[in-house]
Nucleic acid binder design. Structure first.
Lengths: 348, 348
DNA sequence: CTGAAAGCGCTAACAC
DNA sequence: GTGTTAGCGCTTTCAG
């Protein structure tokens, strides 16, 4: 970072010293008041408070961090190939949840976007620098270096989504927050079954993401006899969903329903169905996953899908992290699986 | 923020002192090397570098900030009602651009989500605390307190999108980065005209957002005689677009084209058109704005729209800010308007 | 070109 | 209860 022009306005920022002087107390007392005022007599508290007010005093974070070794900041690490972040409101929502909860805890959100293994060095250096009190990490792929880094530096961490290879080892299990992918998938497929569908296919997500795997497992829970041919692979994009649907239609012209692992793919599948003159839901019923509103509601026909409380999951991640940060024991909290809900629209 | 459990691993982080000792030099020299090594003889530079390597030394940011008064961090402030952030990949992409460019400048991204006037106090305190070197701010609404805050604390700032009320005053003009909304709109409408359309309507965005106003101005540039009745108000959501389209169809059954101020609204408009049995583009041609791929490509029919380079705009914002931070003079760089491009798909 | 020394603003023992 | 006193780890004059 280059030198910022020294700002006159900022350079006159009052210090604790000034506050103490104005209030007629010592720096220590002023500090106590600023930090909650425990163990200081009321009159003095008032004096200091007023001095703070008068001077417009704001504590210097750097100085505080230097001595307390606490940064009041949490890193949110997102490692995701472009295409998803580009077109997926998922992160926006989760980050919103995180942001809200972090605010409630008076902590800052430092956003670290990782885009390739080259970036890991940067992240490593950052974490090694101890610039954040904890980490919230997303979208860990099998080949991620992140779990290793996190383990190595023992940074308090909570994962978003069940990690493929839990970062355990000698260190305690790292907790995660995830929705009930498997249970939600089961509910979706059961719904299709209850509609009388018999040839229910599945368009799966990438095999290196646990959410996709868990959803597929849910599908198989309900349909243990479904042949492998009824499962097509997708990549969580609309385009991939379209391709998978086309394949499925070619190989299984008799299918009467499809459970798609996310809404984006479902929208692609719907397009193909429409192009081929297949009626939805009459001929083929479709259920998605995510309830990504902009996609599900705009779909033709509107998409029946499984909703997960993305924002709530974000908040939960923060709470778990704070729990960990607070526990003097350094004990890790348990992971949390949040419930899903089937949202019925027109496609099934 | 609560006390994090002191981390053993982190507590042994080597200090400059340790590096200096190992390299057999003074702290001052070690510091010089760590900061570029200018004016230090090569042999010593090498010794220090090796010591850094050996110890895995990472500078303590807080200590450095304390003395240099430089944070190496930039705040990204986003003030946006829920509905947009929830369903709009726009921010994801712009933030990605920002993140990349910030990385290139070795600066951290602190994300500040503002959700109501109550949050302004929080942001104010944060900026007043001088915790960031600069600010990148988005989506300023007319009633935003942000410009005032930024002016008051004289925080180096770059806006994303043309602000309604430029934060000028005694302070110099705050620069912004925006796409050529007006020019892009002109191109869209001209395209419609070139298609032979004569009754071209417009679905506008919220009146308090300059992007919406500028796009409407572009529409009127090409169609100065368009009656006010041909312009319907929307709110940048699919639902709003649907409502506006329905109104337009009721009042102007003879319209043969519509330029919609963003893709989300266009998707809603397309839905209504379809529901009413109006063929697109045969009966009514539709052009959107944004080229929000997930929406535009999944639309039925795929949406012709105006693309803006959102990521590039994000990067540009950072560059402008860095320019400002670097200029010893404290001079503000000029605002930048980036070009748009018409992307033809099937809807017009 | 290098080292010694003085803080940056704050908190946390430790005395009083 | 409150004040005094040491630093936290680093950069930066200022001597040498």
């Amino acid at each position: 970072m280059p030198d910022p022009t020294p700002d006159p306005q900022r350079d006159v920022r009052p210090t604790l010293e000034a506050v103490a002087a104005l209030a007629g107390v010592s720096r220590a007392t002023a500090s106590r008041v600023v930090n909650g005022g425990a163990g200081v007599r009321q009159p003095l508290v008032d004096q200091v408070r007023q001095a703070v007010e008068e001077l417009g005093y704001v504590p210097n974070h750097a100085a505080r961090t230097l001595v307390t070794r606490r940064n009041g900041a949490v890193a949110v690490i997102i490692d995701e190939p472009e295409f998803r972040v580009f077109s997926d409101p998922f992160f926006s929502r989760q980050i919103r949840g995180i942001s809200r909860e972090l605010n409630a805890h008076d902590a800052q959100l430092v956003l670290l976007l990782v885009e390739g293994s080259g970036d890991f060095e940067r992240v490593t250096r950052y974490l090694a620098g101890g610039h954040v009190d904890g980490v919230l990490a997303f979208s860990l792929h099998t080949d991620d270096g992140l779990p290793a880094i996190i383990r190595r530096f023992r940074v308090p961490t909570v994962y978003g989504g069940r990690p493929e290879h839990p970062a355990g080892g000698e260190a305690p299990q790292v907790p995660y927050v995830d929705c009930d992918n498997r249970g939600g998938a089961r509910e979706a497929v059961r719904h299709l079954v209850s509609l009388g569908r018999r040839r229910i296919a599945h368009i799966a997500g990438p095999r290196d993401q646990t959410s996709a795997l868990d959803r597929m497992d849910g599908y198989h829970d309900v349909l243990p006899d479904a042949g492998g041919g009824l499962v097509a692979d997708g990549d969580f994009t609309a385009e991939g969903g379209a391709r998978a649907m086309a394949d499925l239609l070619d190989t299984h012209p008799d299918l009467d329903a499809v459970f798609v692992s996310n809404d984006l793919m479902a929208s692609g599948a719907l397009r193909v169905l429409r192009e081929r003159g297949v009626r939805v839901p009459e001929d083929v019923a479709v259920v998605g996953f995510d309830d990504m509103t902009s996609v599900a509601e705009a779909a033709v026909p509107p998409l029946t899908t499984v909703r997960q409380d993305v924002e709530g999951m974000g908040r939960l991640m923060v709470r778990l992290l704070m729990e960990r940060l607070n526990s003097g024991t350094g004990a890790w909290p348990e992971s949390v699986i949040t419930p899903t809900e089937l949202v019925r629209r027109a496609s099934a």
